[in-house]
């Protein structure tokens, strides 16, 4: 059974108004010739993005990605969601380099929010794992000495005794 996307899009739009406290600055929908609907909504208050994410979650939607963009006086952050094929693009504005993280609500936003922090220094406040994603510096900390090599581990996977021998050999020099 195919989703009627026009109907879904108008349902989403009327629901959005209930979820968003501070209101919508502007809104338009691009209806494609093959029945695809792209909704663009500009939020008055960046805090409302959490409510939008909650609505997306309720409809079993997902976060496709987030596009930060430097504009005059701050940054524009466009969130792209997919709900049963309908694209919902919610665009917010921040002037203090922070936005509320939506990853606790939509796990699918995890990496893209971390990338936003790396590349645009816009901090997703409340992100459960706000580590660097790009150009990770931990590689310089001598981790190679800390770990067992794959070839040794793969050899150990062939039989138990091999693995036990490996364990023994490593005794005393492995780091816990």
């Amino acid at each position: 059974m195919k989703t009627n996307k026009q109907e879904l899009a108008s349902t989403l739009l009327s629901e959005l108004k209930l979820y968003i406290n501070a209101g919508i600055a502007s809104m338009h929908t691009f209806s494609g010739p093959l029945g695809n609907e792209d909704i663009f909504v500009r939020l008055n208050n960046k805090e409302d993005i959490a409510s939008v994410a909650t609505m997306v979650k309720k409809h079993q939607g997902r976060c496709v990605t987030v596009t930060p963009n430097g504009v005059e006086g701050g940054d524009e952050v466009a969130y792209h969601f997919c709900i049963e094929g309908v694209m919902l693009n919610a665009i917010s504005f921040t002037d203090d380099k922070t936005v509320p993280s939506i990853t606790p609500i939509l796990k699918s936003a995890d990496w893209t929010e971390r990338e936003m922090n790396d590349l645009f220094a816009i901090k997703p406040v409340g992100h459960p794992n706000p580590k660097r994603l790009i150009l990770d510096e931990s590689i310089a900390e001598g981790v190679f000495k800390e770990y067992v090599s794959l070839s040794e581990a793969m050899a150990g996977a062939a039989t138990c005794s091999l693995w036990e021998n490996l364990n023994e050999a490593k005794q005393g020099e492995s780091h816990e």
Partner: peptide, 11 residues
Amino acid sequence: MSKAYKLPIGP
């Protein structure tokens, strides 16, 4: 034989 290991694969 339940020793905990860390195994690096990559980069």
